[in-house]
């Protein structure tokens, strides 16, 4: 029933949570409004822009397209959980160094899509890189430097090979 509170146990960025949520709460609203993790952005709520992308058990998922309850027992990683303390993830570092970021609104989603790809495969083809971020709209930078930055990060993750 609408408004009814349900129990939810999940891990977000390595931290376990036991929460009460409404059945209709979207994951993105849980993250942004309840947990105050505003790194995932809301661009459309139609699963079209990818700005809200997070990783659930290592897979890139648009957090506006799943209910919070669907993450019960799962591990959610948001952009806030990607860096290791002060040390940035190679994807983040490459995006900075390569000048991929402009307004940055799509960046968290872009990082999460790239991370899901590179966690599985550190040697993707260019087509695979493009495919991994095809659900992430960017408005201003033309994708070129994002694609190249992900390739640079992949090389870094392979130990410079």
């Amino acid at each position: 029933m609408k408004g009814e509170m349900k129990e939810l146990k999940l891990t977000v960025n390595g931290k376990p949570y036991e929460l009460e949520v409404k059945a209709e709460t979207l994951l993105v609203d849980l993250l942004r409004q309840e947990l105050k993790l505003t790194g995932a952005k809301v661009g459309c709520l139609d699963s079209a822009c990818g700005a809200c992308t997070v990783n659930i058990d290592g897979k890139a998922v648009r957090s506006c397209s799943v209910l919070a309850l669907q993450t019960n027992g799962r591990e959610v990683t948001t952009i806030e959980g990607v860096a290791d303390g002060d040390k940035l993830h190679p994807i983040q570092q490459a995006m900075i160094d390569h000048g991929a970021i402009e307004c940055g609104f799509c960046t968290p989603g872009m990082v999460m899509s790239a991370k899901a790809l590179l966690d599985e495969n550190t040697n993707p083809t260019r087509e695979e890189v493009k495919e991994a971020i095809q659900g992430n709209l960017c408005a201003d930078e033309g994708y070129v430097k994002y694609i190249e930055a992900i390739e640079i990060a992949a090389r870094e993750m392979r130990g410079g090979q």
Binding site: R32, G39, K41, I79, L88, M95, I96, G104
Partner: peptide, 21 residues
């Protein structure tokens, strides 16, 4: 030359605050 953006770190870590945040 290539100058790294002053706001890039905040943006790439999700710390940058946009109006809706």
């Amino acid at each position: 030359k290539a100058i790294p953006r002053v706001d890039a770190r905040a943006k790439v870590t999700g710390q940058a605050k946009y109006a809706a945040d």
